[in-house]
Amino acid sequence: MSDIPVSTPINPMLGDNMQQATLDDRNNIPNAGHGGHTVIEEATQDKVKATEKNKTVGKPLCDNPKIEVRDVSVFYGEKQAVFGVDLDIAKNEVIAMIGPSGCGKSTFLRCLNRMNDTVDTCRVEGSITLEGQDIYAPKLDVVPLRAKVGMVFQKPNPFPKSIYENVIYGPKIHGLASRRSEMDEIVETSLRKAGLWEEVKDRLHQPGTGLSGGQQQRLCIARTIAVSPEVILMDEPCSALDPIATAKIEELIAELSQNYTIAIVTHSMQQAARVSNRTAYFHLGKLIEVNDTQLVFTNPDHELTEAYITGRFG
């Protein structure tokens, strides 16, 4: 990408007490393969008041985003769950979404591969583009979209089939492998990438549900990466796991972030701090603040973010 700083329009949601500053944020997004960014930084030490600003603070946008989310609102019937979110997700970054329960972060995540389609009453407004392509275009088929944007769920949900069949299911339905040798290779590389190969190589044809919770979740990750997605969405992938299994998954996320763009929703702020480059804080369906993870946890701009990370609610 070009090294010439590309100027991003000033986020209109920012208040008067903010001013524009240019930073080289290559250090802030270590895996982002972009050049310079024009970002907005808070100039004063004052926190943005919850009552006074309704707009995202921090730097929700970036250059050359993998996923570009503009003014996305999600409704469940009459009830609005997500309010006008603008967010960019850069290539090969890990973005964590945190916030109190019911803040819309999971709903938002599920918009990114249209998993919300399965809910009859759910309606999405605004635009989400994946590499410039509108994923909510009426003619778009969700099948290739979901092959590109994989998802790992909160509860490990391997299919009630063998480990081998679990991993090969995606490639099979997408027609990525037909010969046995190809399949074997995909299964092995996927399981290796998910750090599960050594543990299961002798029992590939045993049920996937016979594994421990952490292994099951890694199997689900292996299953997701078997179709070589570009983006992996993770919806609280560790909330059903013990600390050791969680540590393994987190390690895995760090490894995967070299090749994949990862968006992770988590309830654990420590986890967000450990695994992500950027952190987005959601509150009551609004995207309150997005910034480099380090900044969010050390020096949040918004008082709601601060309240949350300091444990005043959540």
Binding site: P144, R146, G150, I173
Partner: peptide, 18 residues
């Protein structure tokens, strides 16, 4: 049938019929 299985299948890009 647990909804998690349906989600897993859809999340993998299976069509509704699959």
């Amino acid at each position: 049938v647990p909804p998690s299985i349906r989600q897993a299948a859809l999340g993998m890009g299976a069509s509704k019929m699959q």
